[in-house]
Structures are given as C-alpha cells and as structure tokens.
Amino acid sequence: MSGLPHSSLERQRRRAAWLFLLPMLVVLAGVAGWPLFRTVFFSFTDATLATLDGFQGVGLDNYLWLVRDPVWWRAVWNTLVFTVVSVGIETALGLGIALILNAHLPGRGLLRAAVLIPWAIPTVVSAQMWGWMFHDLYGVVNAILMGLGLIAEPRAWTADPDLALPVVIAVDVWKSTPFMALLILAALQMLPRDLYEAARVDGVHPVKVFVRITLPLIRPALMVAVLFRTLDALRVFDLMYVLTGNSRSTMSMSVYARQYLIDFQDVGYGSAAATLLVLVLAAATVLAVTLGRVRVDAGR
C-alpha cells in the first residue's frame, strides 16, 4: 500500500499526452512515413505510373542505371553548386542586413518591411517575375545593362547554359536572403546590450567586436539557420522548374526525380533518384549536427 514512485497524476498526464499525440502521429505516418516507405520500396521495382499495382522487383537495377546516367550526375552537381553558392551568399548578405537592422538607425522599419516582401512572394511568382525581367528580348535586365554599356547585345539569360544556373542562384538569393536576415536578427536581438557598451568603453574596434564577440555568440543560431536553408536548397524544385523547365543546365535532383516519376511515368527509376536525394539530405544533416555541432531544440 505504500505510494508508488509514479502514481495517478503523472500517469494520467502521460496517458493523456499519448492520446493527444496519437492523431498527429497517425496523420504523419499516413502522409509521410508510409509514402516514404513506398518510395523506397518502388525504387527496387519496375513500377510505372500506370502499373502501380502490377510490377516486379528489379533489385538494384534502377540504382545501377542511375549512377551511369550523366544527366543524374549533372543534376547532383547542379544541386550542390546551387546549395553551396546560394546559401553562402544568403548567409553573408543576411548577416549584413541583420546587422543593419539591428543598428538603431533611421529607416530600419522601412528596410525590414522591404526585405519581408521577397519572402512573402510565392516562389513560383518570383520565378515568373524574374523570368520576365531576364527575358532575352523584352527583359528589363538586358535593357538596363545595355543602357549602362555593360553588355553589347542582349543575353538569353535563362537559355544560355553558362548563365542559367547563376540566374537561378540570383533569384534564390533574392527570395531567401530575408529569411536568413530575420533569423540572424532574432539572434542578434537576444545578445546582451551591456556587453557592447563594455566593449565600446574599452575602445575595441567595431570589426574586432563583430569577429570576437558577435559572431561567436550568434554562431549556434547562425548554424541552425544555415542548416535549415541548406536542407531547403538541396530539395529545390519550383525555381528551376518554372524558370528553366526541365533544362539540363539547371536541373536539380528534385526536378530530375519528378521528371522520371511523373513526366516519364517511370516510378521505379524516379523513386530511386528520390531515395538518393533523401540520403543526401540525411548525410548533410548528420554532417551539420556532428561537424557543425548544430543543436536544434524547441526551447527547453
């Protein structure tokens, strides 16, 4: 009859907790867990969109074809270049904008409102807007650059294999830098103010303050933001698809996988590509968590 370590109240709460979690877990299992399992499963079959219920196992065939397809490797390369360059630029620019926003100077309300605009615009819309601005014949970019004498004749920005990927990256930088800036700004605003007053009293040079104080303190938040953006960039689809279609020069892994899955209806092969993409993302996460020591935590 002695009191158990955990009796009624805690038990009741725990039971309620699982009951409350159940609907969410069922839904997530249904829309994420099961489909993911099916994708991995399909990747070992010859299923097509028309024959989703009649297919045969083909072992690793799909993967073997995949690694021998130069277009796939081009897609991997494109995705990695896109991710590294765009996230790199976004981090640098975002840091700069966040520092400006954090300085108590006139015009920062306007600036903050302005940088929110690209973030609010749907990716498809921004792709179309920039697609129009980069239009080879009637685009404003060509008009301005020619007006300034920087280029002699109009460029086919999105069609030129050498220019297409940089254009895609530029649009992504425009669209995603605000997100980065806002996350970094939030981290900056949590820094104790008296630290900076102390540094100023001591006469430390602002650049040194930034490198020695600010950067180390916001590093954890910065790493989380970079990780979020990296994972987002690795699965990029909308931007390439709308701006340059299924063009090889910009095709990302997601575009490649979807092209086989839906356009070519080759579910088995497309699933293999999608599965590899998941593995790349998982590897990036593991790398970030171990090497970068990123800690993701919903508060404590």
């Binding site: 997530l28 994420a32 489909p35 994708t39 399909f42 996988a257 899955l261 839906i262 699933s271 993409l277």
Partner: peptide
C-alpha cells in the same frame, strides 16, 4: 515522458523531407 526528444526530432525531420521523396507513395495514396 520518455521518447519526447525523439518525437520532436522526428517531427522536425519530417518538415525537412524532400517532397519529391514522398511523391510516388502519395500519388498511390
């Protein structure tokens, strides 16, 4: 409760999923 941290991690993981990875399974569903 035990497993809470793992659950949070799974939830976050799902939001990081490449959507193309569930496309064929979802299509079937």
């Amino acid at each position: 409760f035990r497993g809470r941290g793992l659950l949070l991690f799974v939830v976050l993981g799902v939001s990081m999923f490449p959507q193309v990875a569930v496309l064929s399974g979802l299509f079937e569903l």
